[in-house]
Structure formats: structure tokens, C-alpha cells
Design a protein around this nucleic acid. Structure first.
Lengths: 219, 219
DNA sequence: GCGTTAACTCACTAGTTCGTACATTAATCG
DNA sequence: CGATTAATGTACGAACTAGTGAGTTAACGC
């Protein structure tokens, strides 16, 4: 039987598949153990290829880690770009945006872990990545528009910065995942308990609306 | 000249001083590099004693790390215990409590880093520590009282859980420190910029008050 | 003074861990 | 088909890293 012509799924040698395989395993390993804790040999072992290929395709542990970060951030940004809240009232749009972040972080714990890990390393790898340094956030544009609409309609206060609102949403959603272990160990409460999920999800939206709709002047 | 009687600062051999020295250096090293990234040899070198003493006093790298965590948490809790807001109106008491956490986290970045690191390790070391597992939080008791007073006076909504409020305060204050590097790398904003400090500090209090004083019923 | 012990020093090792030299095999192309 | 190159596998090594064996010295009670 002759070897099938290229563009075949059964080729024994496949650049893209090997690369993707390594990247996939590495993402789990780095998210699980951290950059320093992750072992190149262990990544290689869980791959269907060998350690030599990691160095062949990525160059080294650090470049592999940067590639993992890039892939993770780009995937997240692609999802955020799908946000469509132009047809919603400002209040509902804010809630929708917050809930998207809430759901999103909950669905991607590995990403949150990678971000925590990268912060421990003072974002030095992000700084070293041409792809990531200064990568724009599409969700932030949507947020800016929502706040503008709400303000124009006289329903939102006029002294809020979109990035500050984004920070509040992120802090709530990130903390819930990133600090769940110490929080549970100290307070005995699992912030990811499904029974409390709706409560938190609604609470975040309530807080944002309460803050945004409160008049600027304050006793 | 006879050797001075004990309880002397110039003794060549001093159990407590050596232990404290190791713990101090280890705290910085673990906070800086993470548990896996920290090197026992490097800790030893920055100490005025030798590596052998680390094993003599603490038993190993992991026990040393746990001792570091215990000391860090106990110091924090001691500070929190000084909180005195009983003489304040509920609104002011909430703001005071939030600002205490805000200031506190900002003043102890190493502690925040240790908490992040411990979460990456899924709080396994806290769980292994008899001192830390289930350590009560005095600030939480204060918070409970404040909320009760505010509710009794008809000024706070009656459906809030103290631990949820604590979570919101923590998430805001922790995020500002723990995620400052990726946040700055992606958005170009330093959340620790002194020029924005007062803004964030006030914003947190505003958000809490807006949420707590909003009536439960909602359109 | 003197023996005992707690505190301390030094040199060493067993096991890891990242990375690479070198050999080999599959795909591709004239 | 034969040669060239891209992709892959094997084996190894240099440097690091947590931990220890065994001896040494200061402090302290008597």
C-alpha cells in the first residue's frame, strides 16, 4: 500500500499535531505545578512524543512556557470578542458582561492559575512575549461603550473609569478561583460550591449596578 | 573576663536568634521565588548561619515553609485583632475596616505573595499546619457586629453575609497586589501608583456602602 | 575546673533536572 | 528511485539541590 498523499490525518510525522500535543500537555503541567515546579521530563512523558521534540519545536522550558501563556491569552481574548451587548439596556449589559467574566473564569481554572503563576514571576514572561505585551482587551471596549450609554441616558454616574470597573469585576471573579484554597482552609467555605454559585453571580451584578447608579454627590 | 550571665545579646550561640534569622530570610526567599523556586542553599547563604541549622531547627524545606506561613498569618491576625470600630457609625465602621485591609495588604506584599503561592499549591501546607488549619479571623467578628448594628438601625440591608462582605473586600485588596504585574503588562496601568491610591481606597468604601445601604427589593 | 549537652561547622552524596550530541527514520522532490 | 531534508528517538552529561554523617565548640550546671 502506497503512502497516502499529504494532508492526511494518519501521517506518522506531523509538525502541527506534535506541536499542539506538546503545548496542550505543557499547559496542564505548568498550570498544575507552576513554572519552576513543572518538569520538562514529565511534560515529555505525558506527550505522545519525546523530550527532544520540545527542544526541537520550542527551544527550551521558558520558551515553551511563553508559548503556553500566549495560547491561553489568545483563546480567552477570542471568547471575549464574541461579547455582544449593544442591544441591551446599560444595566443589563453590565450584568451580562460581569456574568460572562464570571462564567468564563469558572470554566477556565487553568488560565487563572497561569495568571497567578505569572504574577509570582512578576509578569516577566509576558513582558518577553511580543504577542502578549500590550495585547488589547476587546471586553474593555464593550465596557467603555456600555458606560457611555448609561451615562448619556442619565442612569450611570459620570465619574467612573471603564478600567476600574473591569478591575472590580476581575478581582471578584479571579479571587473566587485563585484564592479558593486558602479561603476554604481558613474560613471553611468553598467559594466554588455550586449551591452558592448563583448567589455570587447575582451579588457581583448587584454591587456593580448599585455603585454605577448611585449619584455622584454623597453625604 | 568571665562569660556574662545568660539573657545576653552578645552570646555567640543563641537558639532564638538563629531561628528568627532563618525564618526571616526564608520568608523573603519563599515570597520572592515561590516554594518550588526557593533554594535551601540560598536561604542558608543569606543567613548568618549555615544550611545545617535549617535542618537542625526546622527539619526540612517544607517544614521551614510551613513555619514561614504560620508566622506570617499570626502576625497579620495580631494586627487585625487591634481593630476597634465599636464607637463608629456602621457606615464609617465599614469604611474603616475596608481601609484597614487595604492599607494592610499594601504594607505587606510578601504576605500576599505567600498566599498566592500557597493557593498554587492548593493550600496543602496550611492544611498540614495545626496552627493554621481553621485559624479564626478576628476581623470577621468585628465585621459581623458592624453589619448587625447597621441592620438593627435600619440602614443596612438584611440579606448580607459577613463572610461575603469580607470576600469582596479581600478580593479587591488582594487583586490590587497579587495581579498588579499582569494587569500592568496588559493594560499599562500600575494599580499601586501612589497617585491612584486614594481613588481606589475611596472607591472600595463607596462600593460597599452603596451595596449595603441599597434596599433589598430591587426592580 | 569539668563533664555534659545543646548549638554549630564542614564536607559530602544520592538523586534530579535541563539540555544536547548523535544516530535514525520518514517524507519530499527531481 | 535516490538524494536531500525535516522530523524523531536514544543515551548521556554537567550542574544543581535537598538532605545527612560525623566531628567540633561554646554554654552551663555542679
Amino acid at each position: 500500500m502506497a503512502a497516502p498523499p499529504s494532508s492526511d490525518a494518519e501521517r506518522q510525522r506531523d509538525k502541527d499535531r506534535t506541536r499542539a500535543d506538546i503545548l496542550d500537555v505543557a499547559t496542564r503541567e505548568f498550570a498544575d505545578k507552576g513554572y519552576t515546579g513543572a518538569r520538562v521530563d514529565e511534560i515529555a512523558e505525558r506527550t505522545s512524543t519525546t523530550k527532544r521534540m520540545i527542544y526541537y519545536y520550542f527551544g527550551g522550558k521558558e520558551q515553551l512556557y511563553i508559548a503556553v501563556l500566549e495560547q491561553a491569552y489568545l483563546a480567552i481574548r477570542a471568547l471575549e470578542a464574541e461579547l455582544d451587548v449593544e442591544h441591551l439596556e446599560p444595566e443589563d449589559a453590565i450584568r451580562r458582561l460581569a456574568e460572562l467574566t464570571f462564567d468564563h473564569h469558572e470554566a477556565h481554572p487553568d488560565f487563572i492559575r497561569l495568571v497567578s503563576i505569572e504574577n509570582i514571576h512578576r509578569a516577566e514572561h509576558i513582558a518577553r512575549s511580543e504577542v502578549l505585551a500590550g495585547l488589547a482587551n476587546p471586553a474593555l471596549d464593550g465596557l467603555t461603550q456600555i458606560l457611555e450609554r448609561g451615562r448619556a441616558a442619565g442612569r450611570f454616574r459620570d465619574d467612573v473609569d471603564p478600567l476600574d470597573v473591569h478591575m472590580v469585576i476581575s478581582s471578584f471573579c479571579v479571587f473566587r478561583l485563585a484564592n479558593r484554597h486558602t479561603f476554604a482552609a481558613i474560613f471553611g467555605r468553598d467559594m466554588l460550591d455550586p449551591d452558592r454559585r448563583e448567589h455570587y453571580r447575582r451579588m457581583l451584578g448587584d454591587m456593580l449596578i448599585d455603585y454605577l447608579t448611585r449619584s455622584t454627590t454623597r453625604p
